[in-house]
Amino acid sequence: MLEGKVKWFNSEKGFGFIEVEGQDDVFVHFSAIQGEGFKTLEEGQAVSFEIVEGNRGPQAANVTKEA
């Protein structure tokens, strides 16, 4: 699992990017966010995740919000 911070997330469109120190930003789709209820992320929020190869390159999977 990697750790990063949410760079930005558009809850209307359901996607955004996660910043990872020393690496390129990683695309995140709302469907990759773990948990119940409305799936969104806040700018600057700490998250842990895995990287998988998507249709358009690397993207986040199994995203969990850090306490």
Rank of each mutant, 00 (worst) to 15 (best):
Asn62Asp: 05
Lys65His: 08
Asn10Leu: 04
Glu53Met: 15
Leu2Val: 13
Phe27Glu: 06
Gly37Thr: 08
Glu12Thr: 15
Val47Met: 01
Lys7His: 03
Gly14Trp: 00
Asn10Glu: 06
Ser11Asn: 10
Val63Trp: 00
Ile33Met: 05
Ala60Phe: 00
Gly37Val: 05
Leu2Ile: 13
Glu21Trp: 08
Glu19Lys: 15
Gly22Gln: 09
Glu43Asp: 10
Phe9Asn: 01
Ile33Asn: 02
Asn62Val: 06
Gly35Phe: 03
Gln34Arg: 11
Gln34Asn: 14
Gly14Glu: 03
Gln34Asp: 09
Glu50Gln: 15
Ala61His: 14
Ser48Gly: 08
Glu43Tyr: 13
Lys65Phe: 12
Ala60Ile: 01
Met1Ala: 05
Val26Ile: 12
Leu2Lys: 15
Ala46Arg: 14
Lys5Arg: 12
Lys13Gln: 09
Ala61Arg: 14
Phe17Ala: 06
Leu41Cys: 04
Glu50Asn: 13
Val6Ala: 03
Gly54Phe: 05
Pro58Leu: 13
Glu36Gly: 14
Gly14Phe: 02
Gln45Trp: 05
Phe49Tyr: 04
Lys13Asn: 05
Leu2Pro: 04
Asp24Gly: 10
Gly14Lys: 05
Ile51Met: 11
Leu2Asn: 11
Leu2Tyr: 15
Glu36Asp: 14
Gly54Arg: 07
Ala67Trp: 08
Gly57Trp: 05
Gly35Pro: 04
Lys13Arg: 15
Glu53Ser: 12
Glu43Arg: 15
Trp8Asp: 04
Phe49Pro: 01
Gly16Tyr: 01
Gln45Cys: 08
Lys13Thr: 07
Val52Pro: 02
Gln59Asn: 04
Val6Met: 04
Glu36Lys: 15
Val6Ile: 09
Asp25Ala: 05
His29Tyr: 02
Thr40Asn: 10
Lys39Asp: 07
Gly54Leu: 05
Val6Glu: 00
Trp8Cys: 09
Gly16Leu: 01
Ala67Arg: 11
Gln23Ser: 13
Ser48Pro: 01
Gln23Phe: 07
Glu50Arg: 12
Gly16Trp: 00
Asn55Pro: 14
Lys7Pro: 00
Ile18Tyr: 01
Asn62Thr: 06
Leu41Ile: 09
Phe9Asp: 01
Asn10Phe: 03
Asn55Asp: 15
Ala67Glu: 08
Gln23Asp: 07
Gly37Pro: 07
Ser31Gln: 05
Glu12Asn: 15
Ala32Ser: 12
Gly44Glu: 08
Gly57Leu: 04
Val20Leu: 13
Gly4Trp: 01
Leu41Thr: 02
Lys5His: 08
Val6Asn: 03
Thr40Glu: 10
Val52Arg: 11
Gln45Ile: 05
Asp25Arg: 03
Gly4Ser: 01
Phe27Val: 04
Met1Glu: 06
Ala32Cys: 06
Val52Asp: 06
Glu43Cys: 15
Trp8Ala: 05
Ser31Pro: 03
Val26Gly: 02
Gly16Glu: 01
Pro58Ala: 12
Lys39Ile: 06
Phe38Cys: 11
Phe49Met: 06
His29Ala: 03
Glu43Lys: 15
Ser11Tyr: 12
Phe9Trp: 12
Asp25Leu: 03
Val28Trp: 00
Gln23Cys: 12
Glu12Gly: 13
Lys7Met: 05
Val20Ile: 14
Trp8Gln: 06
Glu53Val: 14
Gly44Tyr: 02
Asn10Asp: 11
Gly4Tyr: 00
Gly22Cys: 06
Gly57Phe: 05
Gly37Trp: 04
Asp24Leu: 07
Glu3Thr: 11
Ile51Thr: 06
Gly22Asp: 15
Lys39Glu: 06
Leu2Gly: 06
Glu50Ser: 14
Ile33Cys: 06
Asn62Phe: 08
Val52Ala: 10
Phe27Asn: 02
Val26Ala: 04
Val28Gln: 02
Ala67Cys: 13
Val47Arg: 01
Gln59Ser: 08
Val63Gln: 00
Met1Trp: 09
Val6Thr: 05
Arg56Asp: 04
Asp25Glu: 07
Arg56Met: 08
Glu66Val: 15
Gly22Asn: 10
Val20Met: 12
Phe17Leu: 07
Phe17Ile: 08
Asn62Ser: 09
Glu42Asn: 14
Lys7Asn: 04
Gly35Cys: 11
Phe9Lys: 03
Glu21Ala: 15
Asn55Leu: 14
Asp24Cys: 11
Ser31Gly: 06
Ile33Gly: 03
Asp25Ile: 01
Gly35Val: 07
Glu66Leu: 15
Gly35His: 10
Leu2Ala: 10
Val20Asp: 02
Ile51Leu: 14
Glu66Pro: 14
Met1Leu: 08
Gly35Arg: 04
Lys39Trp: 04
Gly22Ala: 09
Ser31His: 09
Leu41His: 00
Ser48Met: 15
Gln34Gly: 08
Ile33Tyr: 03
Glu43Asn: 15
Ser48Phe: 13
Val63Glu: 02
Gly16His: 02
Lys39Cys: 07
Glu50Leu: 08
Gln34Glu: 11
Glu36Cys: 10
Ala32Phe: 02
Val47Thr: 02
His29Val: 01
Trp8Phe: 10
Glu36Trp: 07
Val6Phe: 00
Val26Cys: 09
Phe49Ala: 00
Trp8Ser: 09
Phe9Met: 03
Val47Gly: 00
Asn62Pro: 01
Asp24Met: 09
Gln45Lys: 06
Thr40Arg: 12
Glu3Asp: 14
Phe15Ser: 04
Gly22Lys: 09
Glu21Phe: 08
Phe17Trp: 08
Ala61Tyr: 11
Phe27Asp: 02
Trp8Met: 09
Glu12Cys: 15
Val63Leu: 10
Gly54His: 05
Lys5Glu: 06
Val63Cys: 05
Glu36Phe: 10
Glu12Met: 15
Ser31Thr: 13
Ile33Ala: 03
Lys7Arg: 10
Gln23Leu: 10
Phe17Thr: 06
Asn62Ile: 05
Trp8His: 06
Glu19Trp: 05
Gly37Ala: 08
Val28Met: 06
Ser11Cys: 14
Gly16Thr: 00
Arg56Cys: 07
Gln59Met: 15
Arg56Phe: 05
Lys7Cys: 06
Arg56Gln: 09
Gly35Asp: 15
Gly14Arg: 05
Ser11Gln: 13
Asn55Gln: 14
Ser31Ala: 06
Asp24Val: 09
Met1Asn: 05
Ala67His: 10
Phe17Asp: 02
Lys13Trp: 07
Ala60His: 00
Trp8Pro: 02
Ala32Glu: 09
Val52Trp: 09
Phe38His: 10
Val28Ser: 01
Glu19Arg: 12
Ala32Gly: 08
Asp25His: 04
Ile18Val: 06
Asn10Thr: 06
Gly37Met: 05
Phe17Val: 07
Val47Ser: 00
Phe9Tyr: 08
His29Cys: 02
Phe30Val: 10
Gly44Asn: 14
Ile33Val: 10
Val28Ile: 06
Ala46Cys: 13
Phe38Glu: 13
Glu12Asp: 14
Glu36Thr: 12
Glu50Trp: 07
Ala32Val: 05
Lys13Asp: 06
Ala46Asn: 11
Ile51Pro: 05
Glu21Arg: 11
Val47Gln: 01
Phe27Gln: 05
Glu3Leu: 14
Phe30Lys: 12
Phe17Cys: 06
Gly4Pro: 00
Ala60Gln: 00
Gly57His: 05
Phe49Ser: 01
Val26Trp: 02
Glu42Asp: 11
Lys65Pro: 13
Ala32Trp: 01
Asp25Gly: 03
Ser11Arg: 12
Ile18Glu: 02
Gly14Met: 03
Lys7Ser: 08
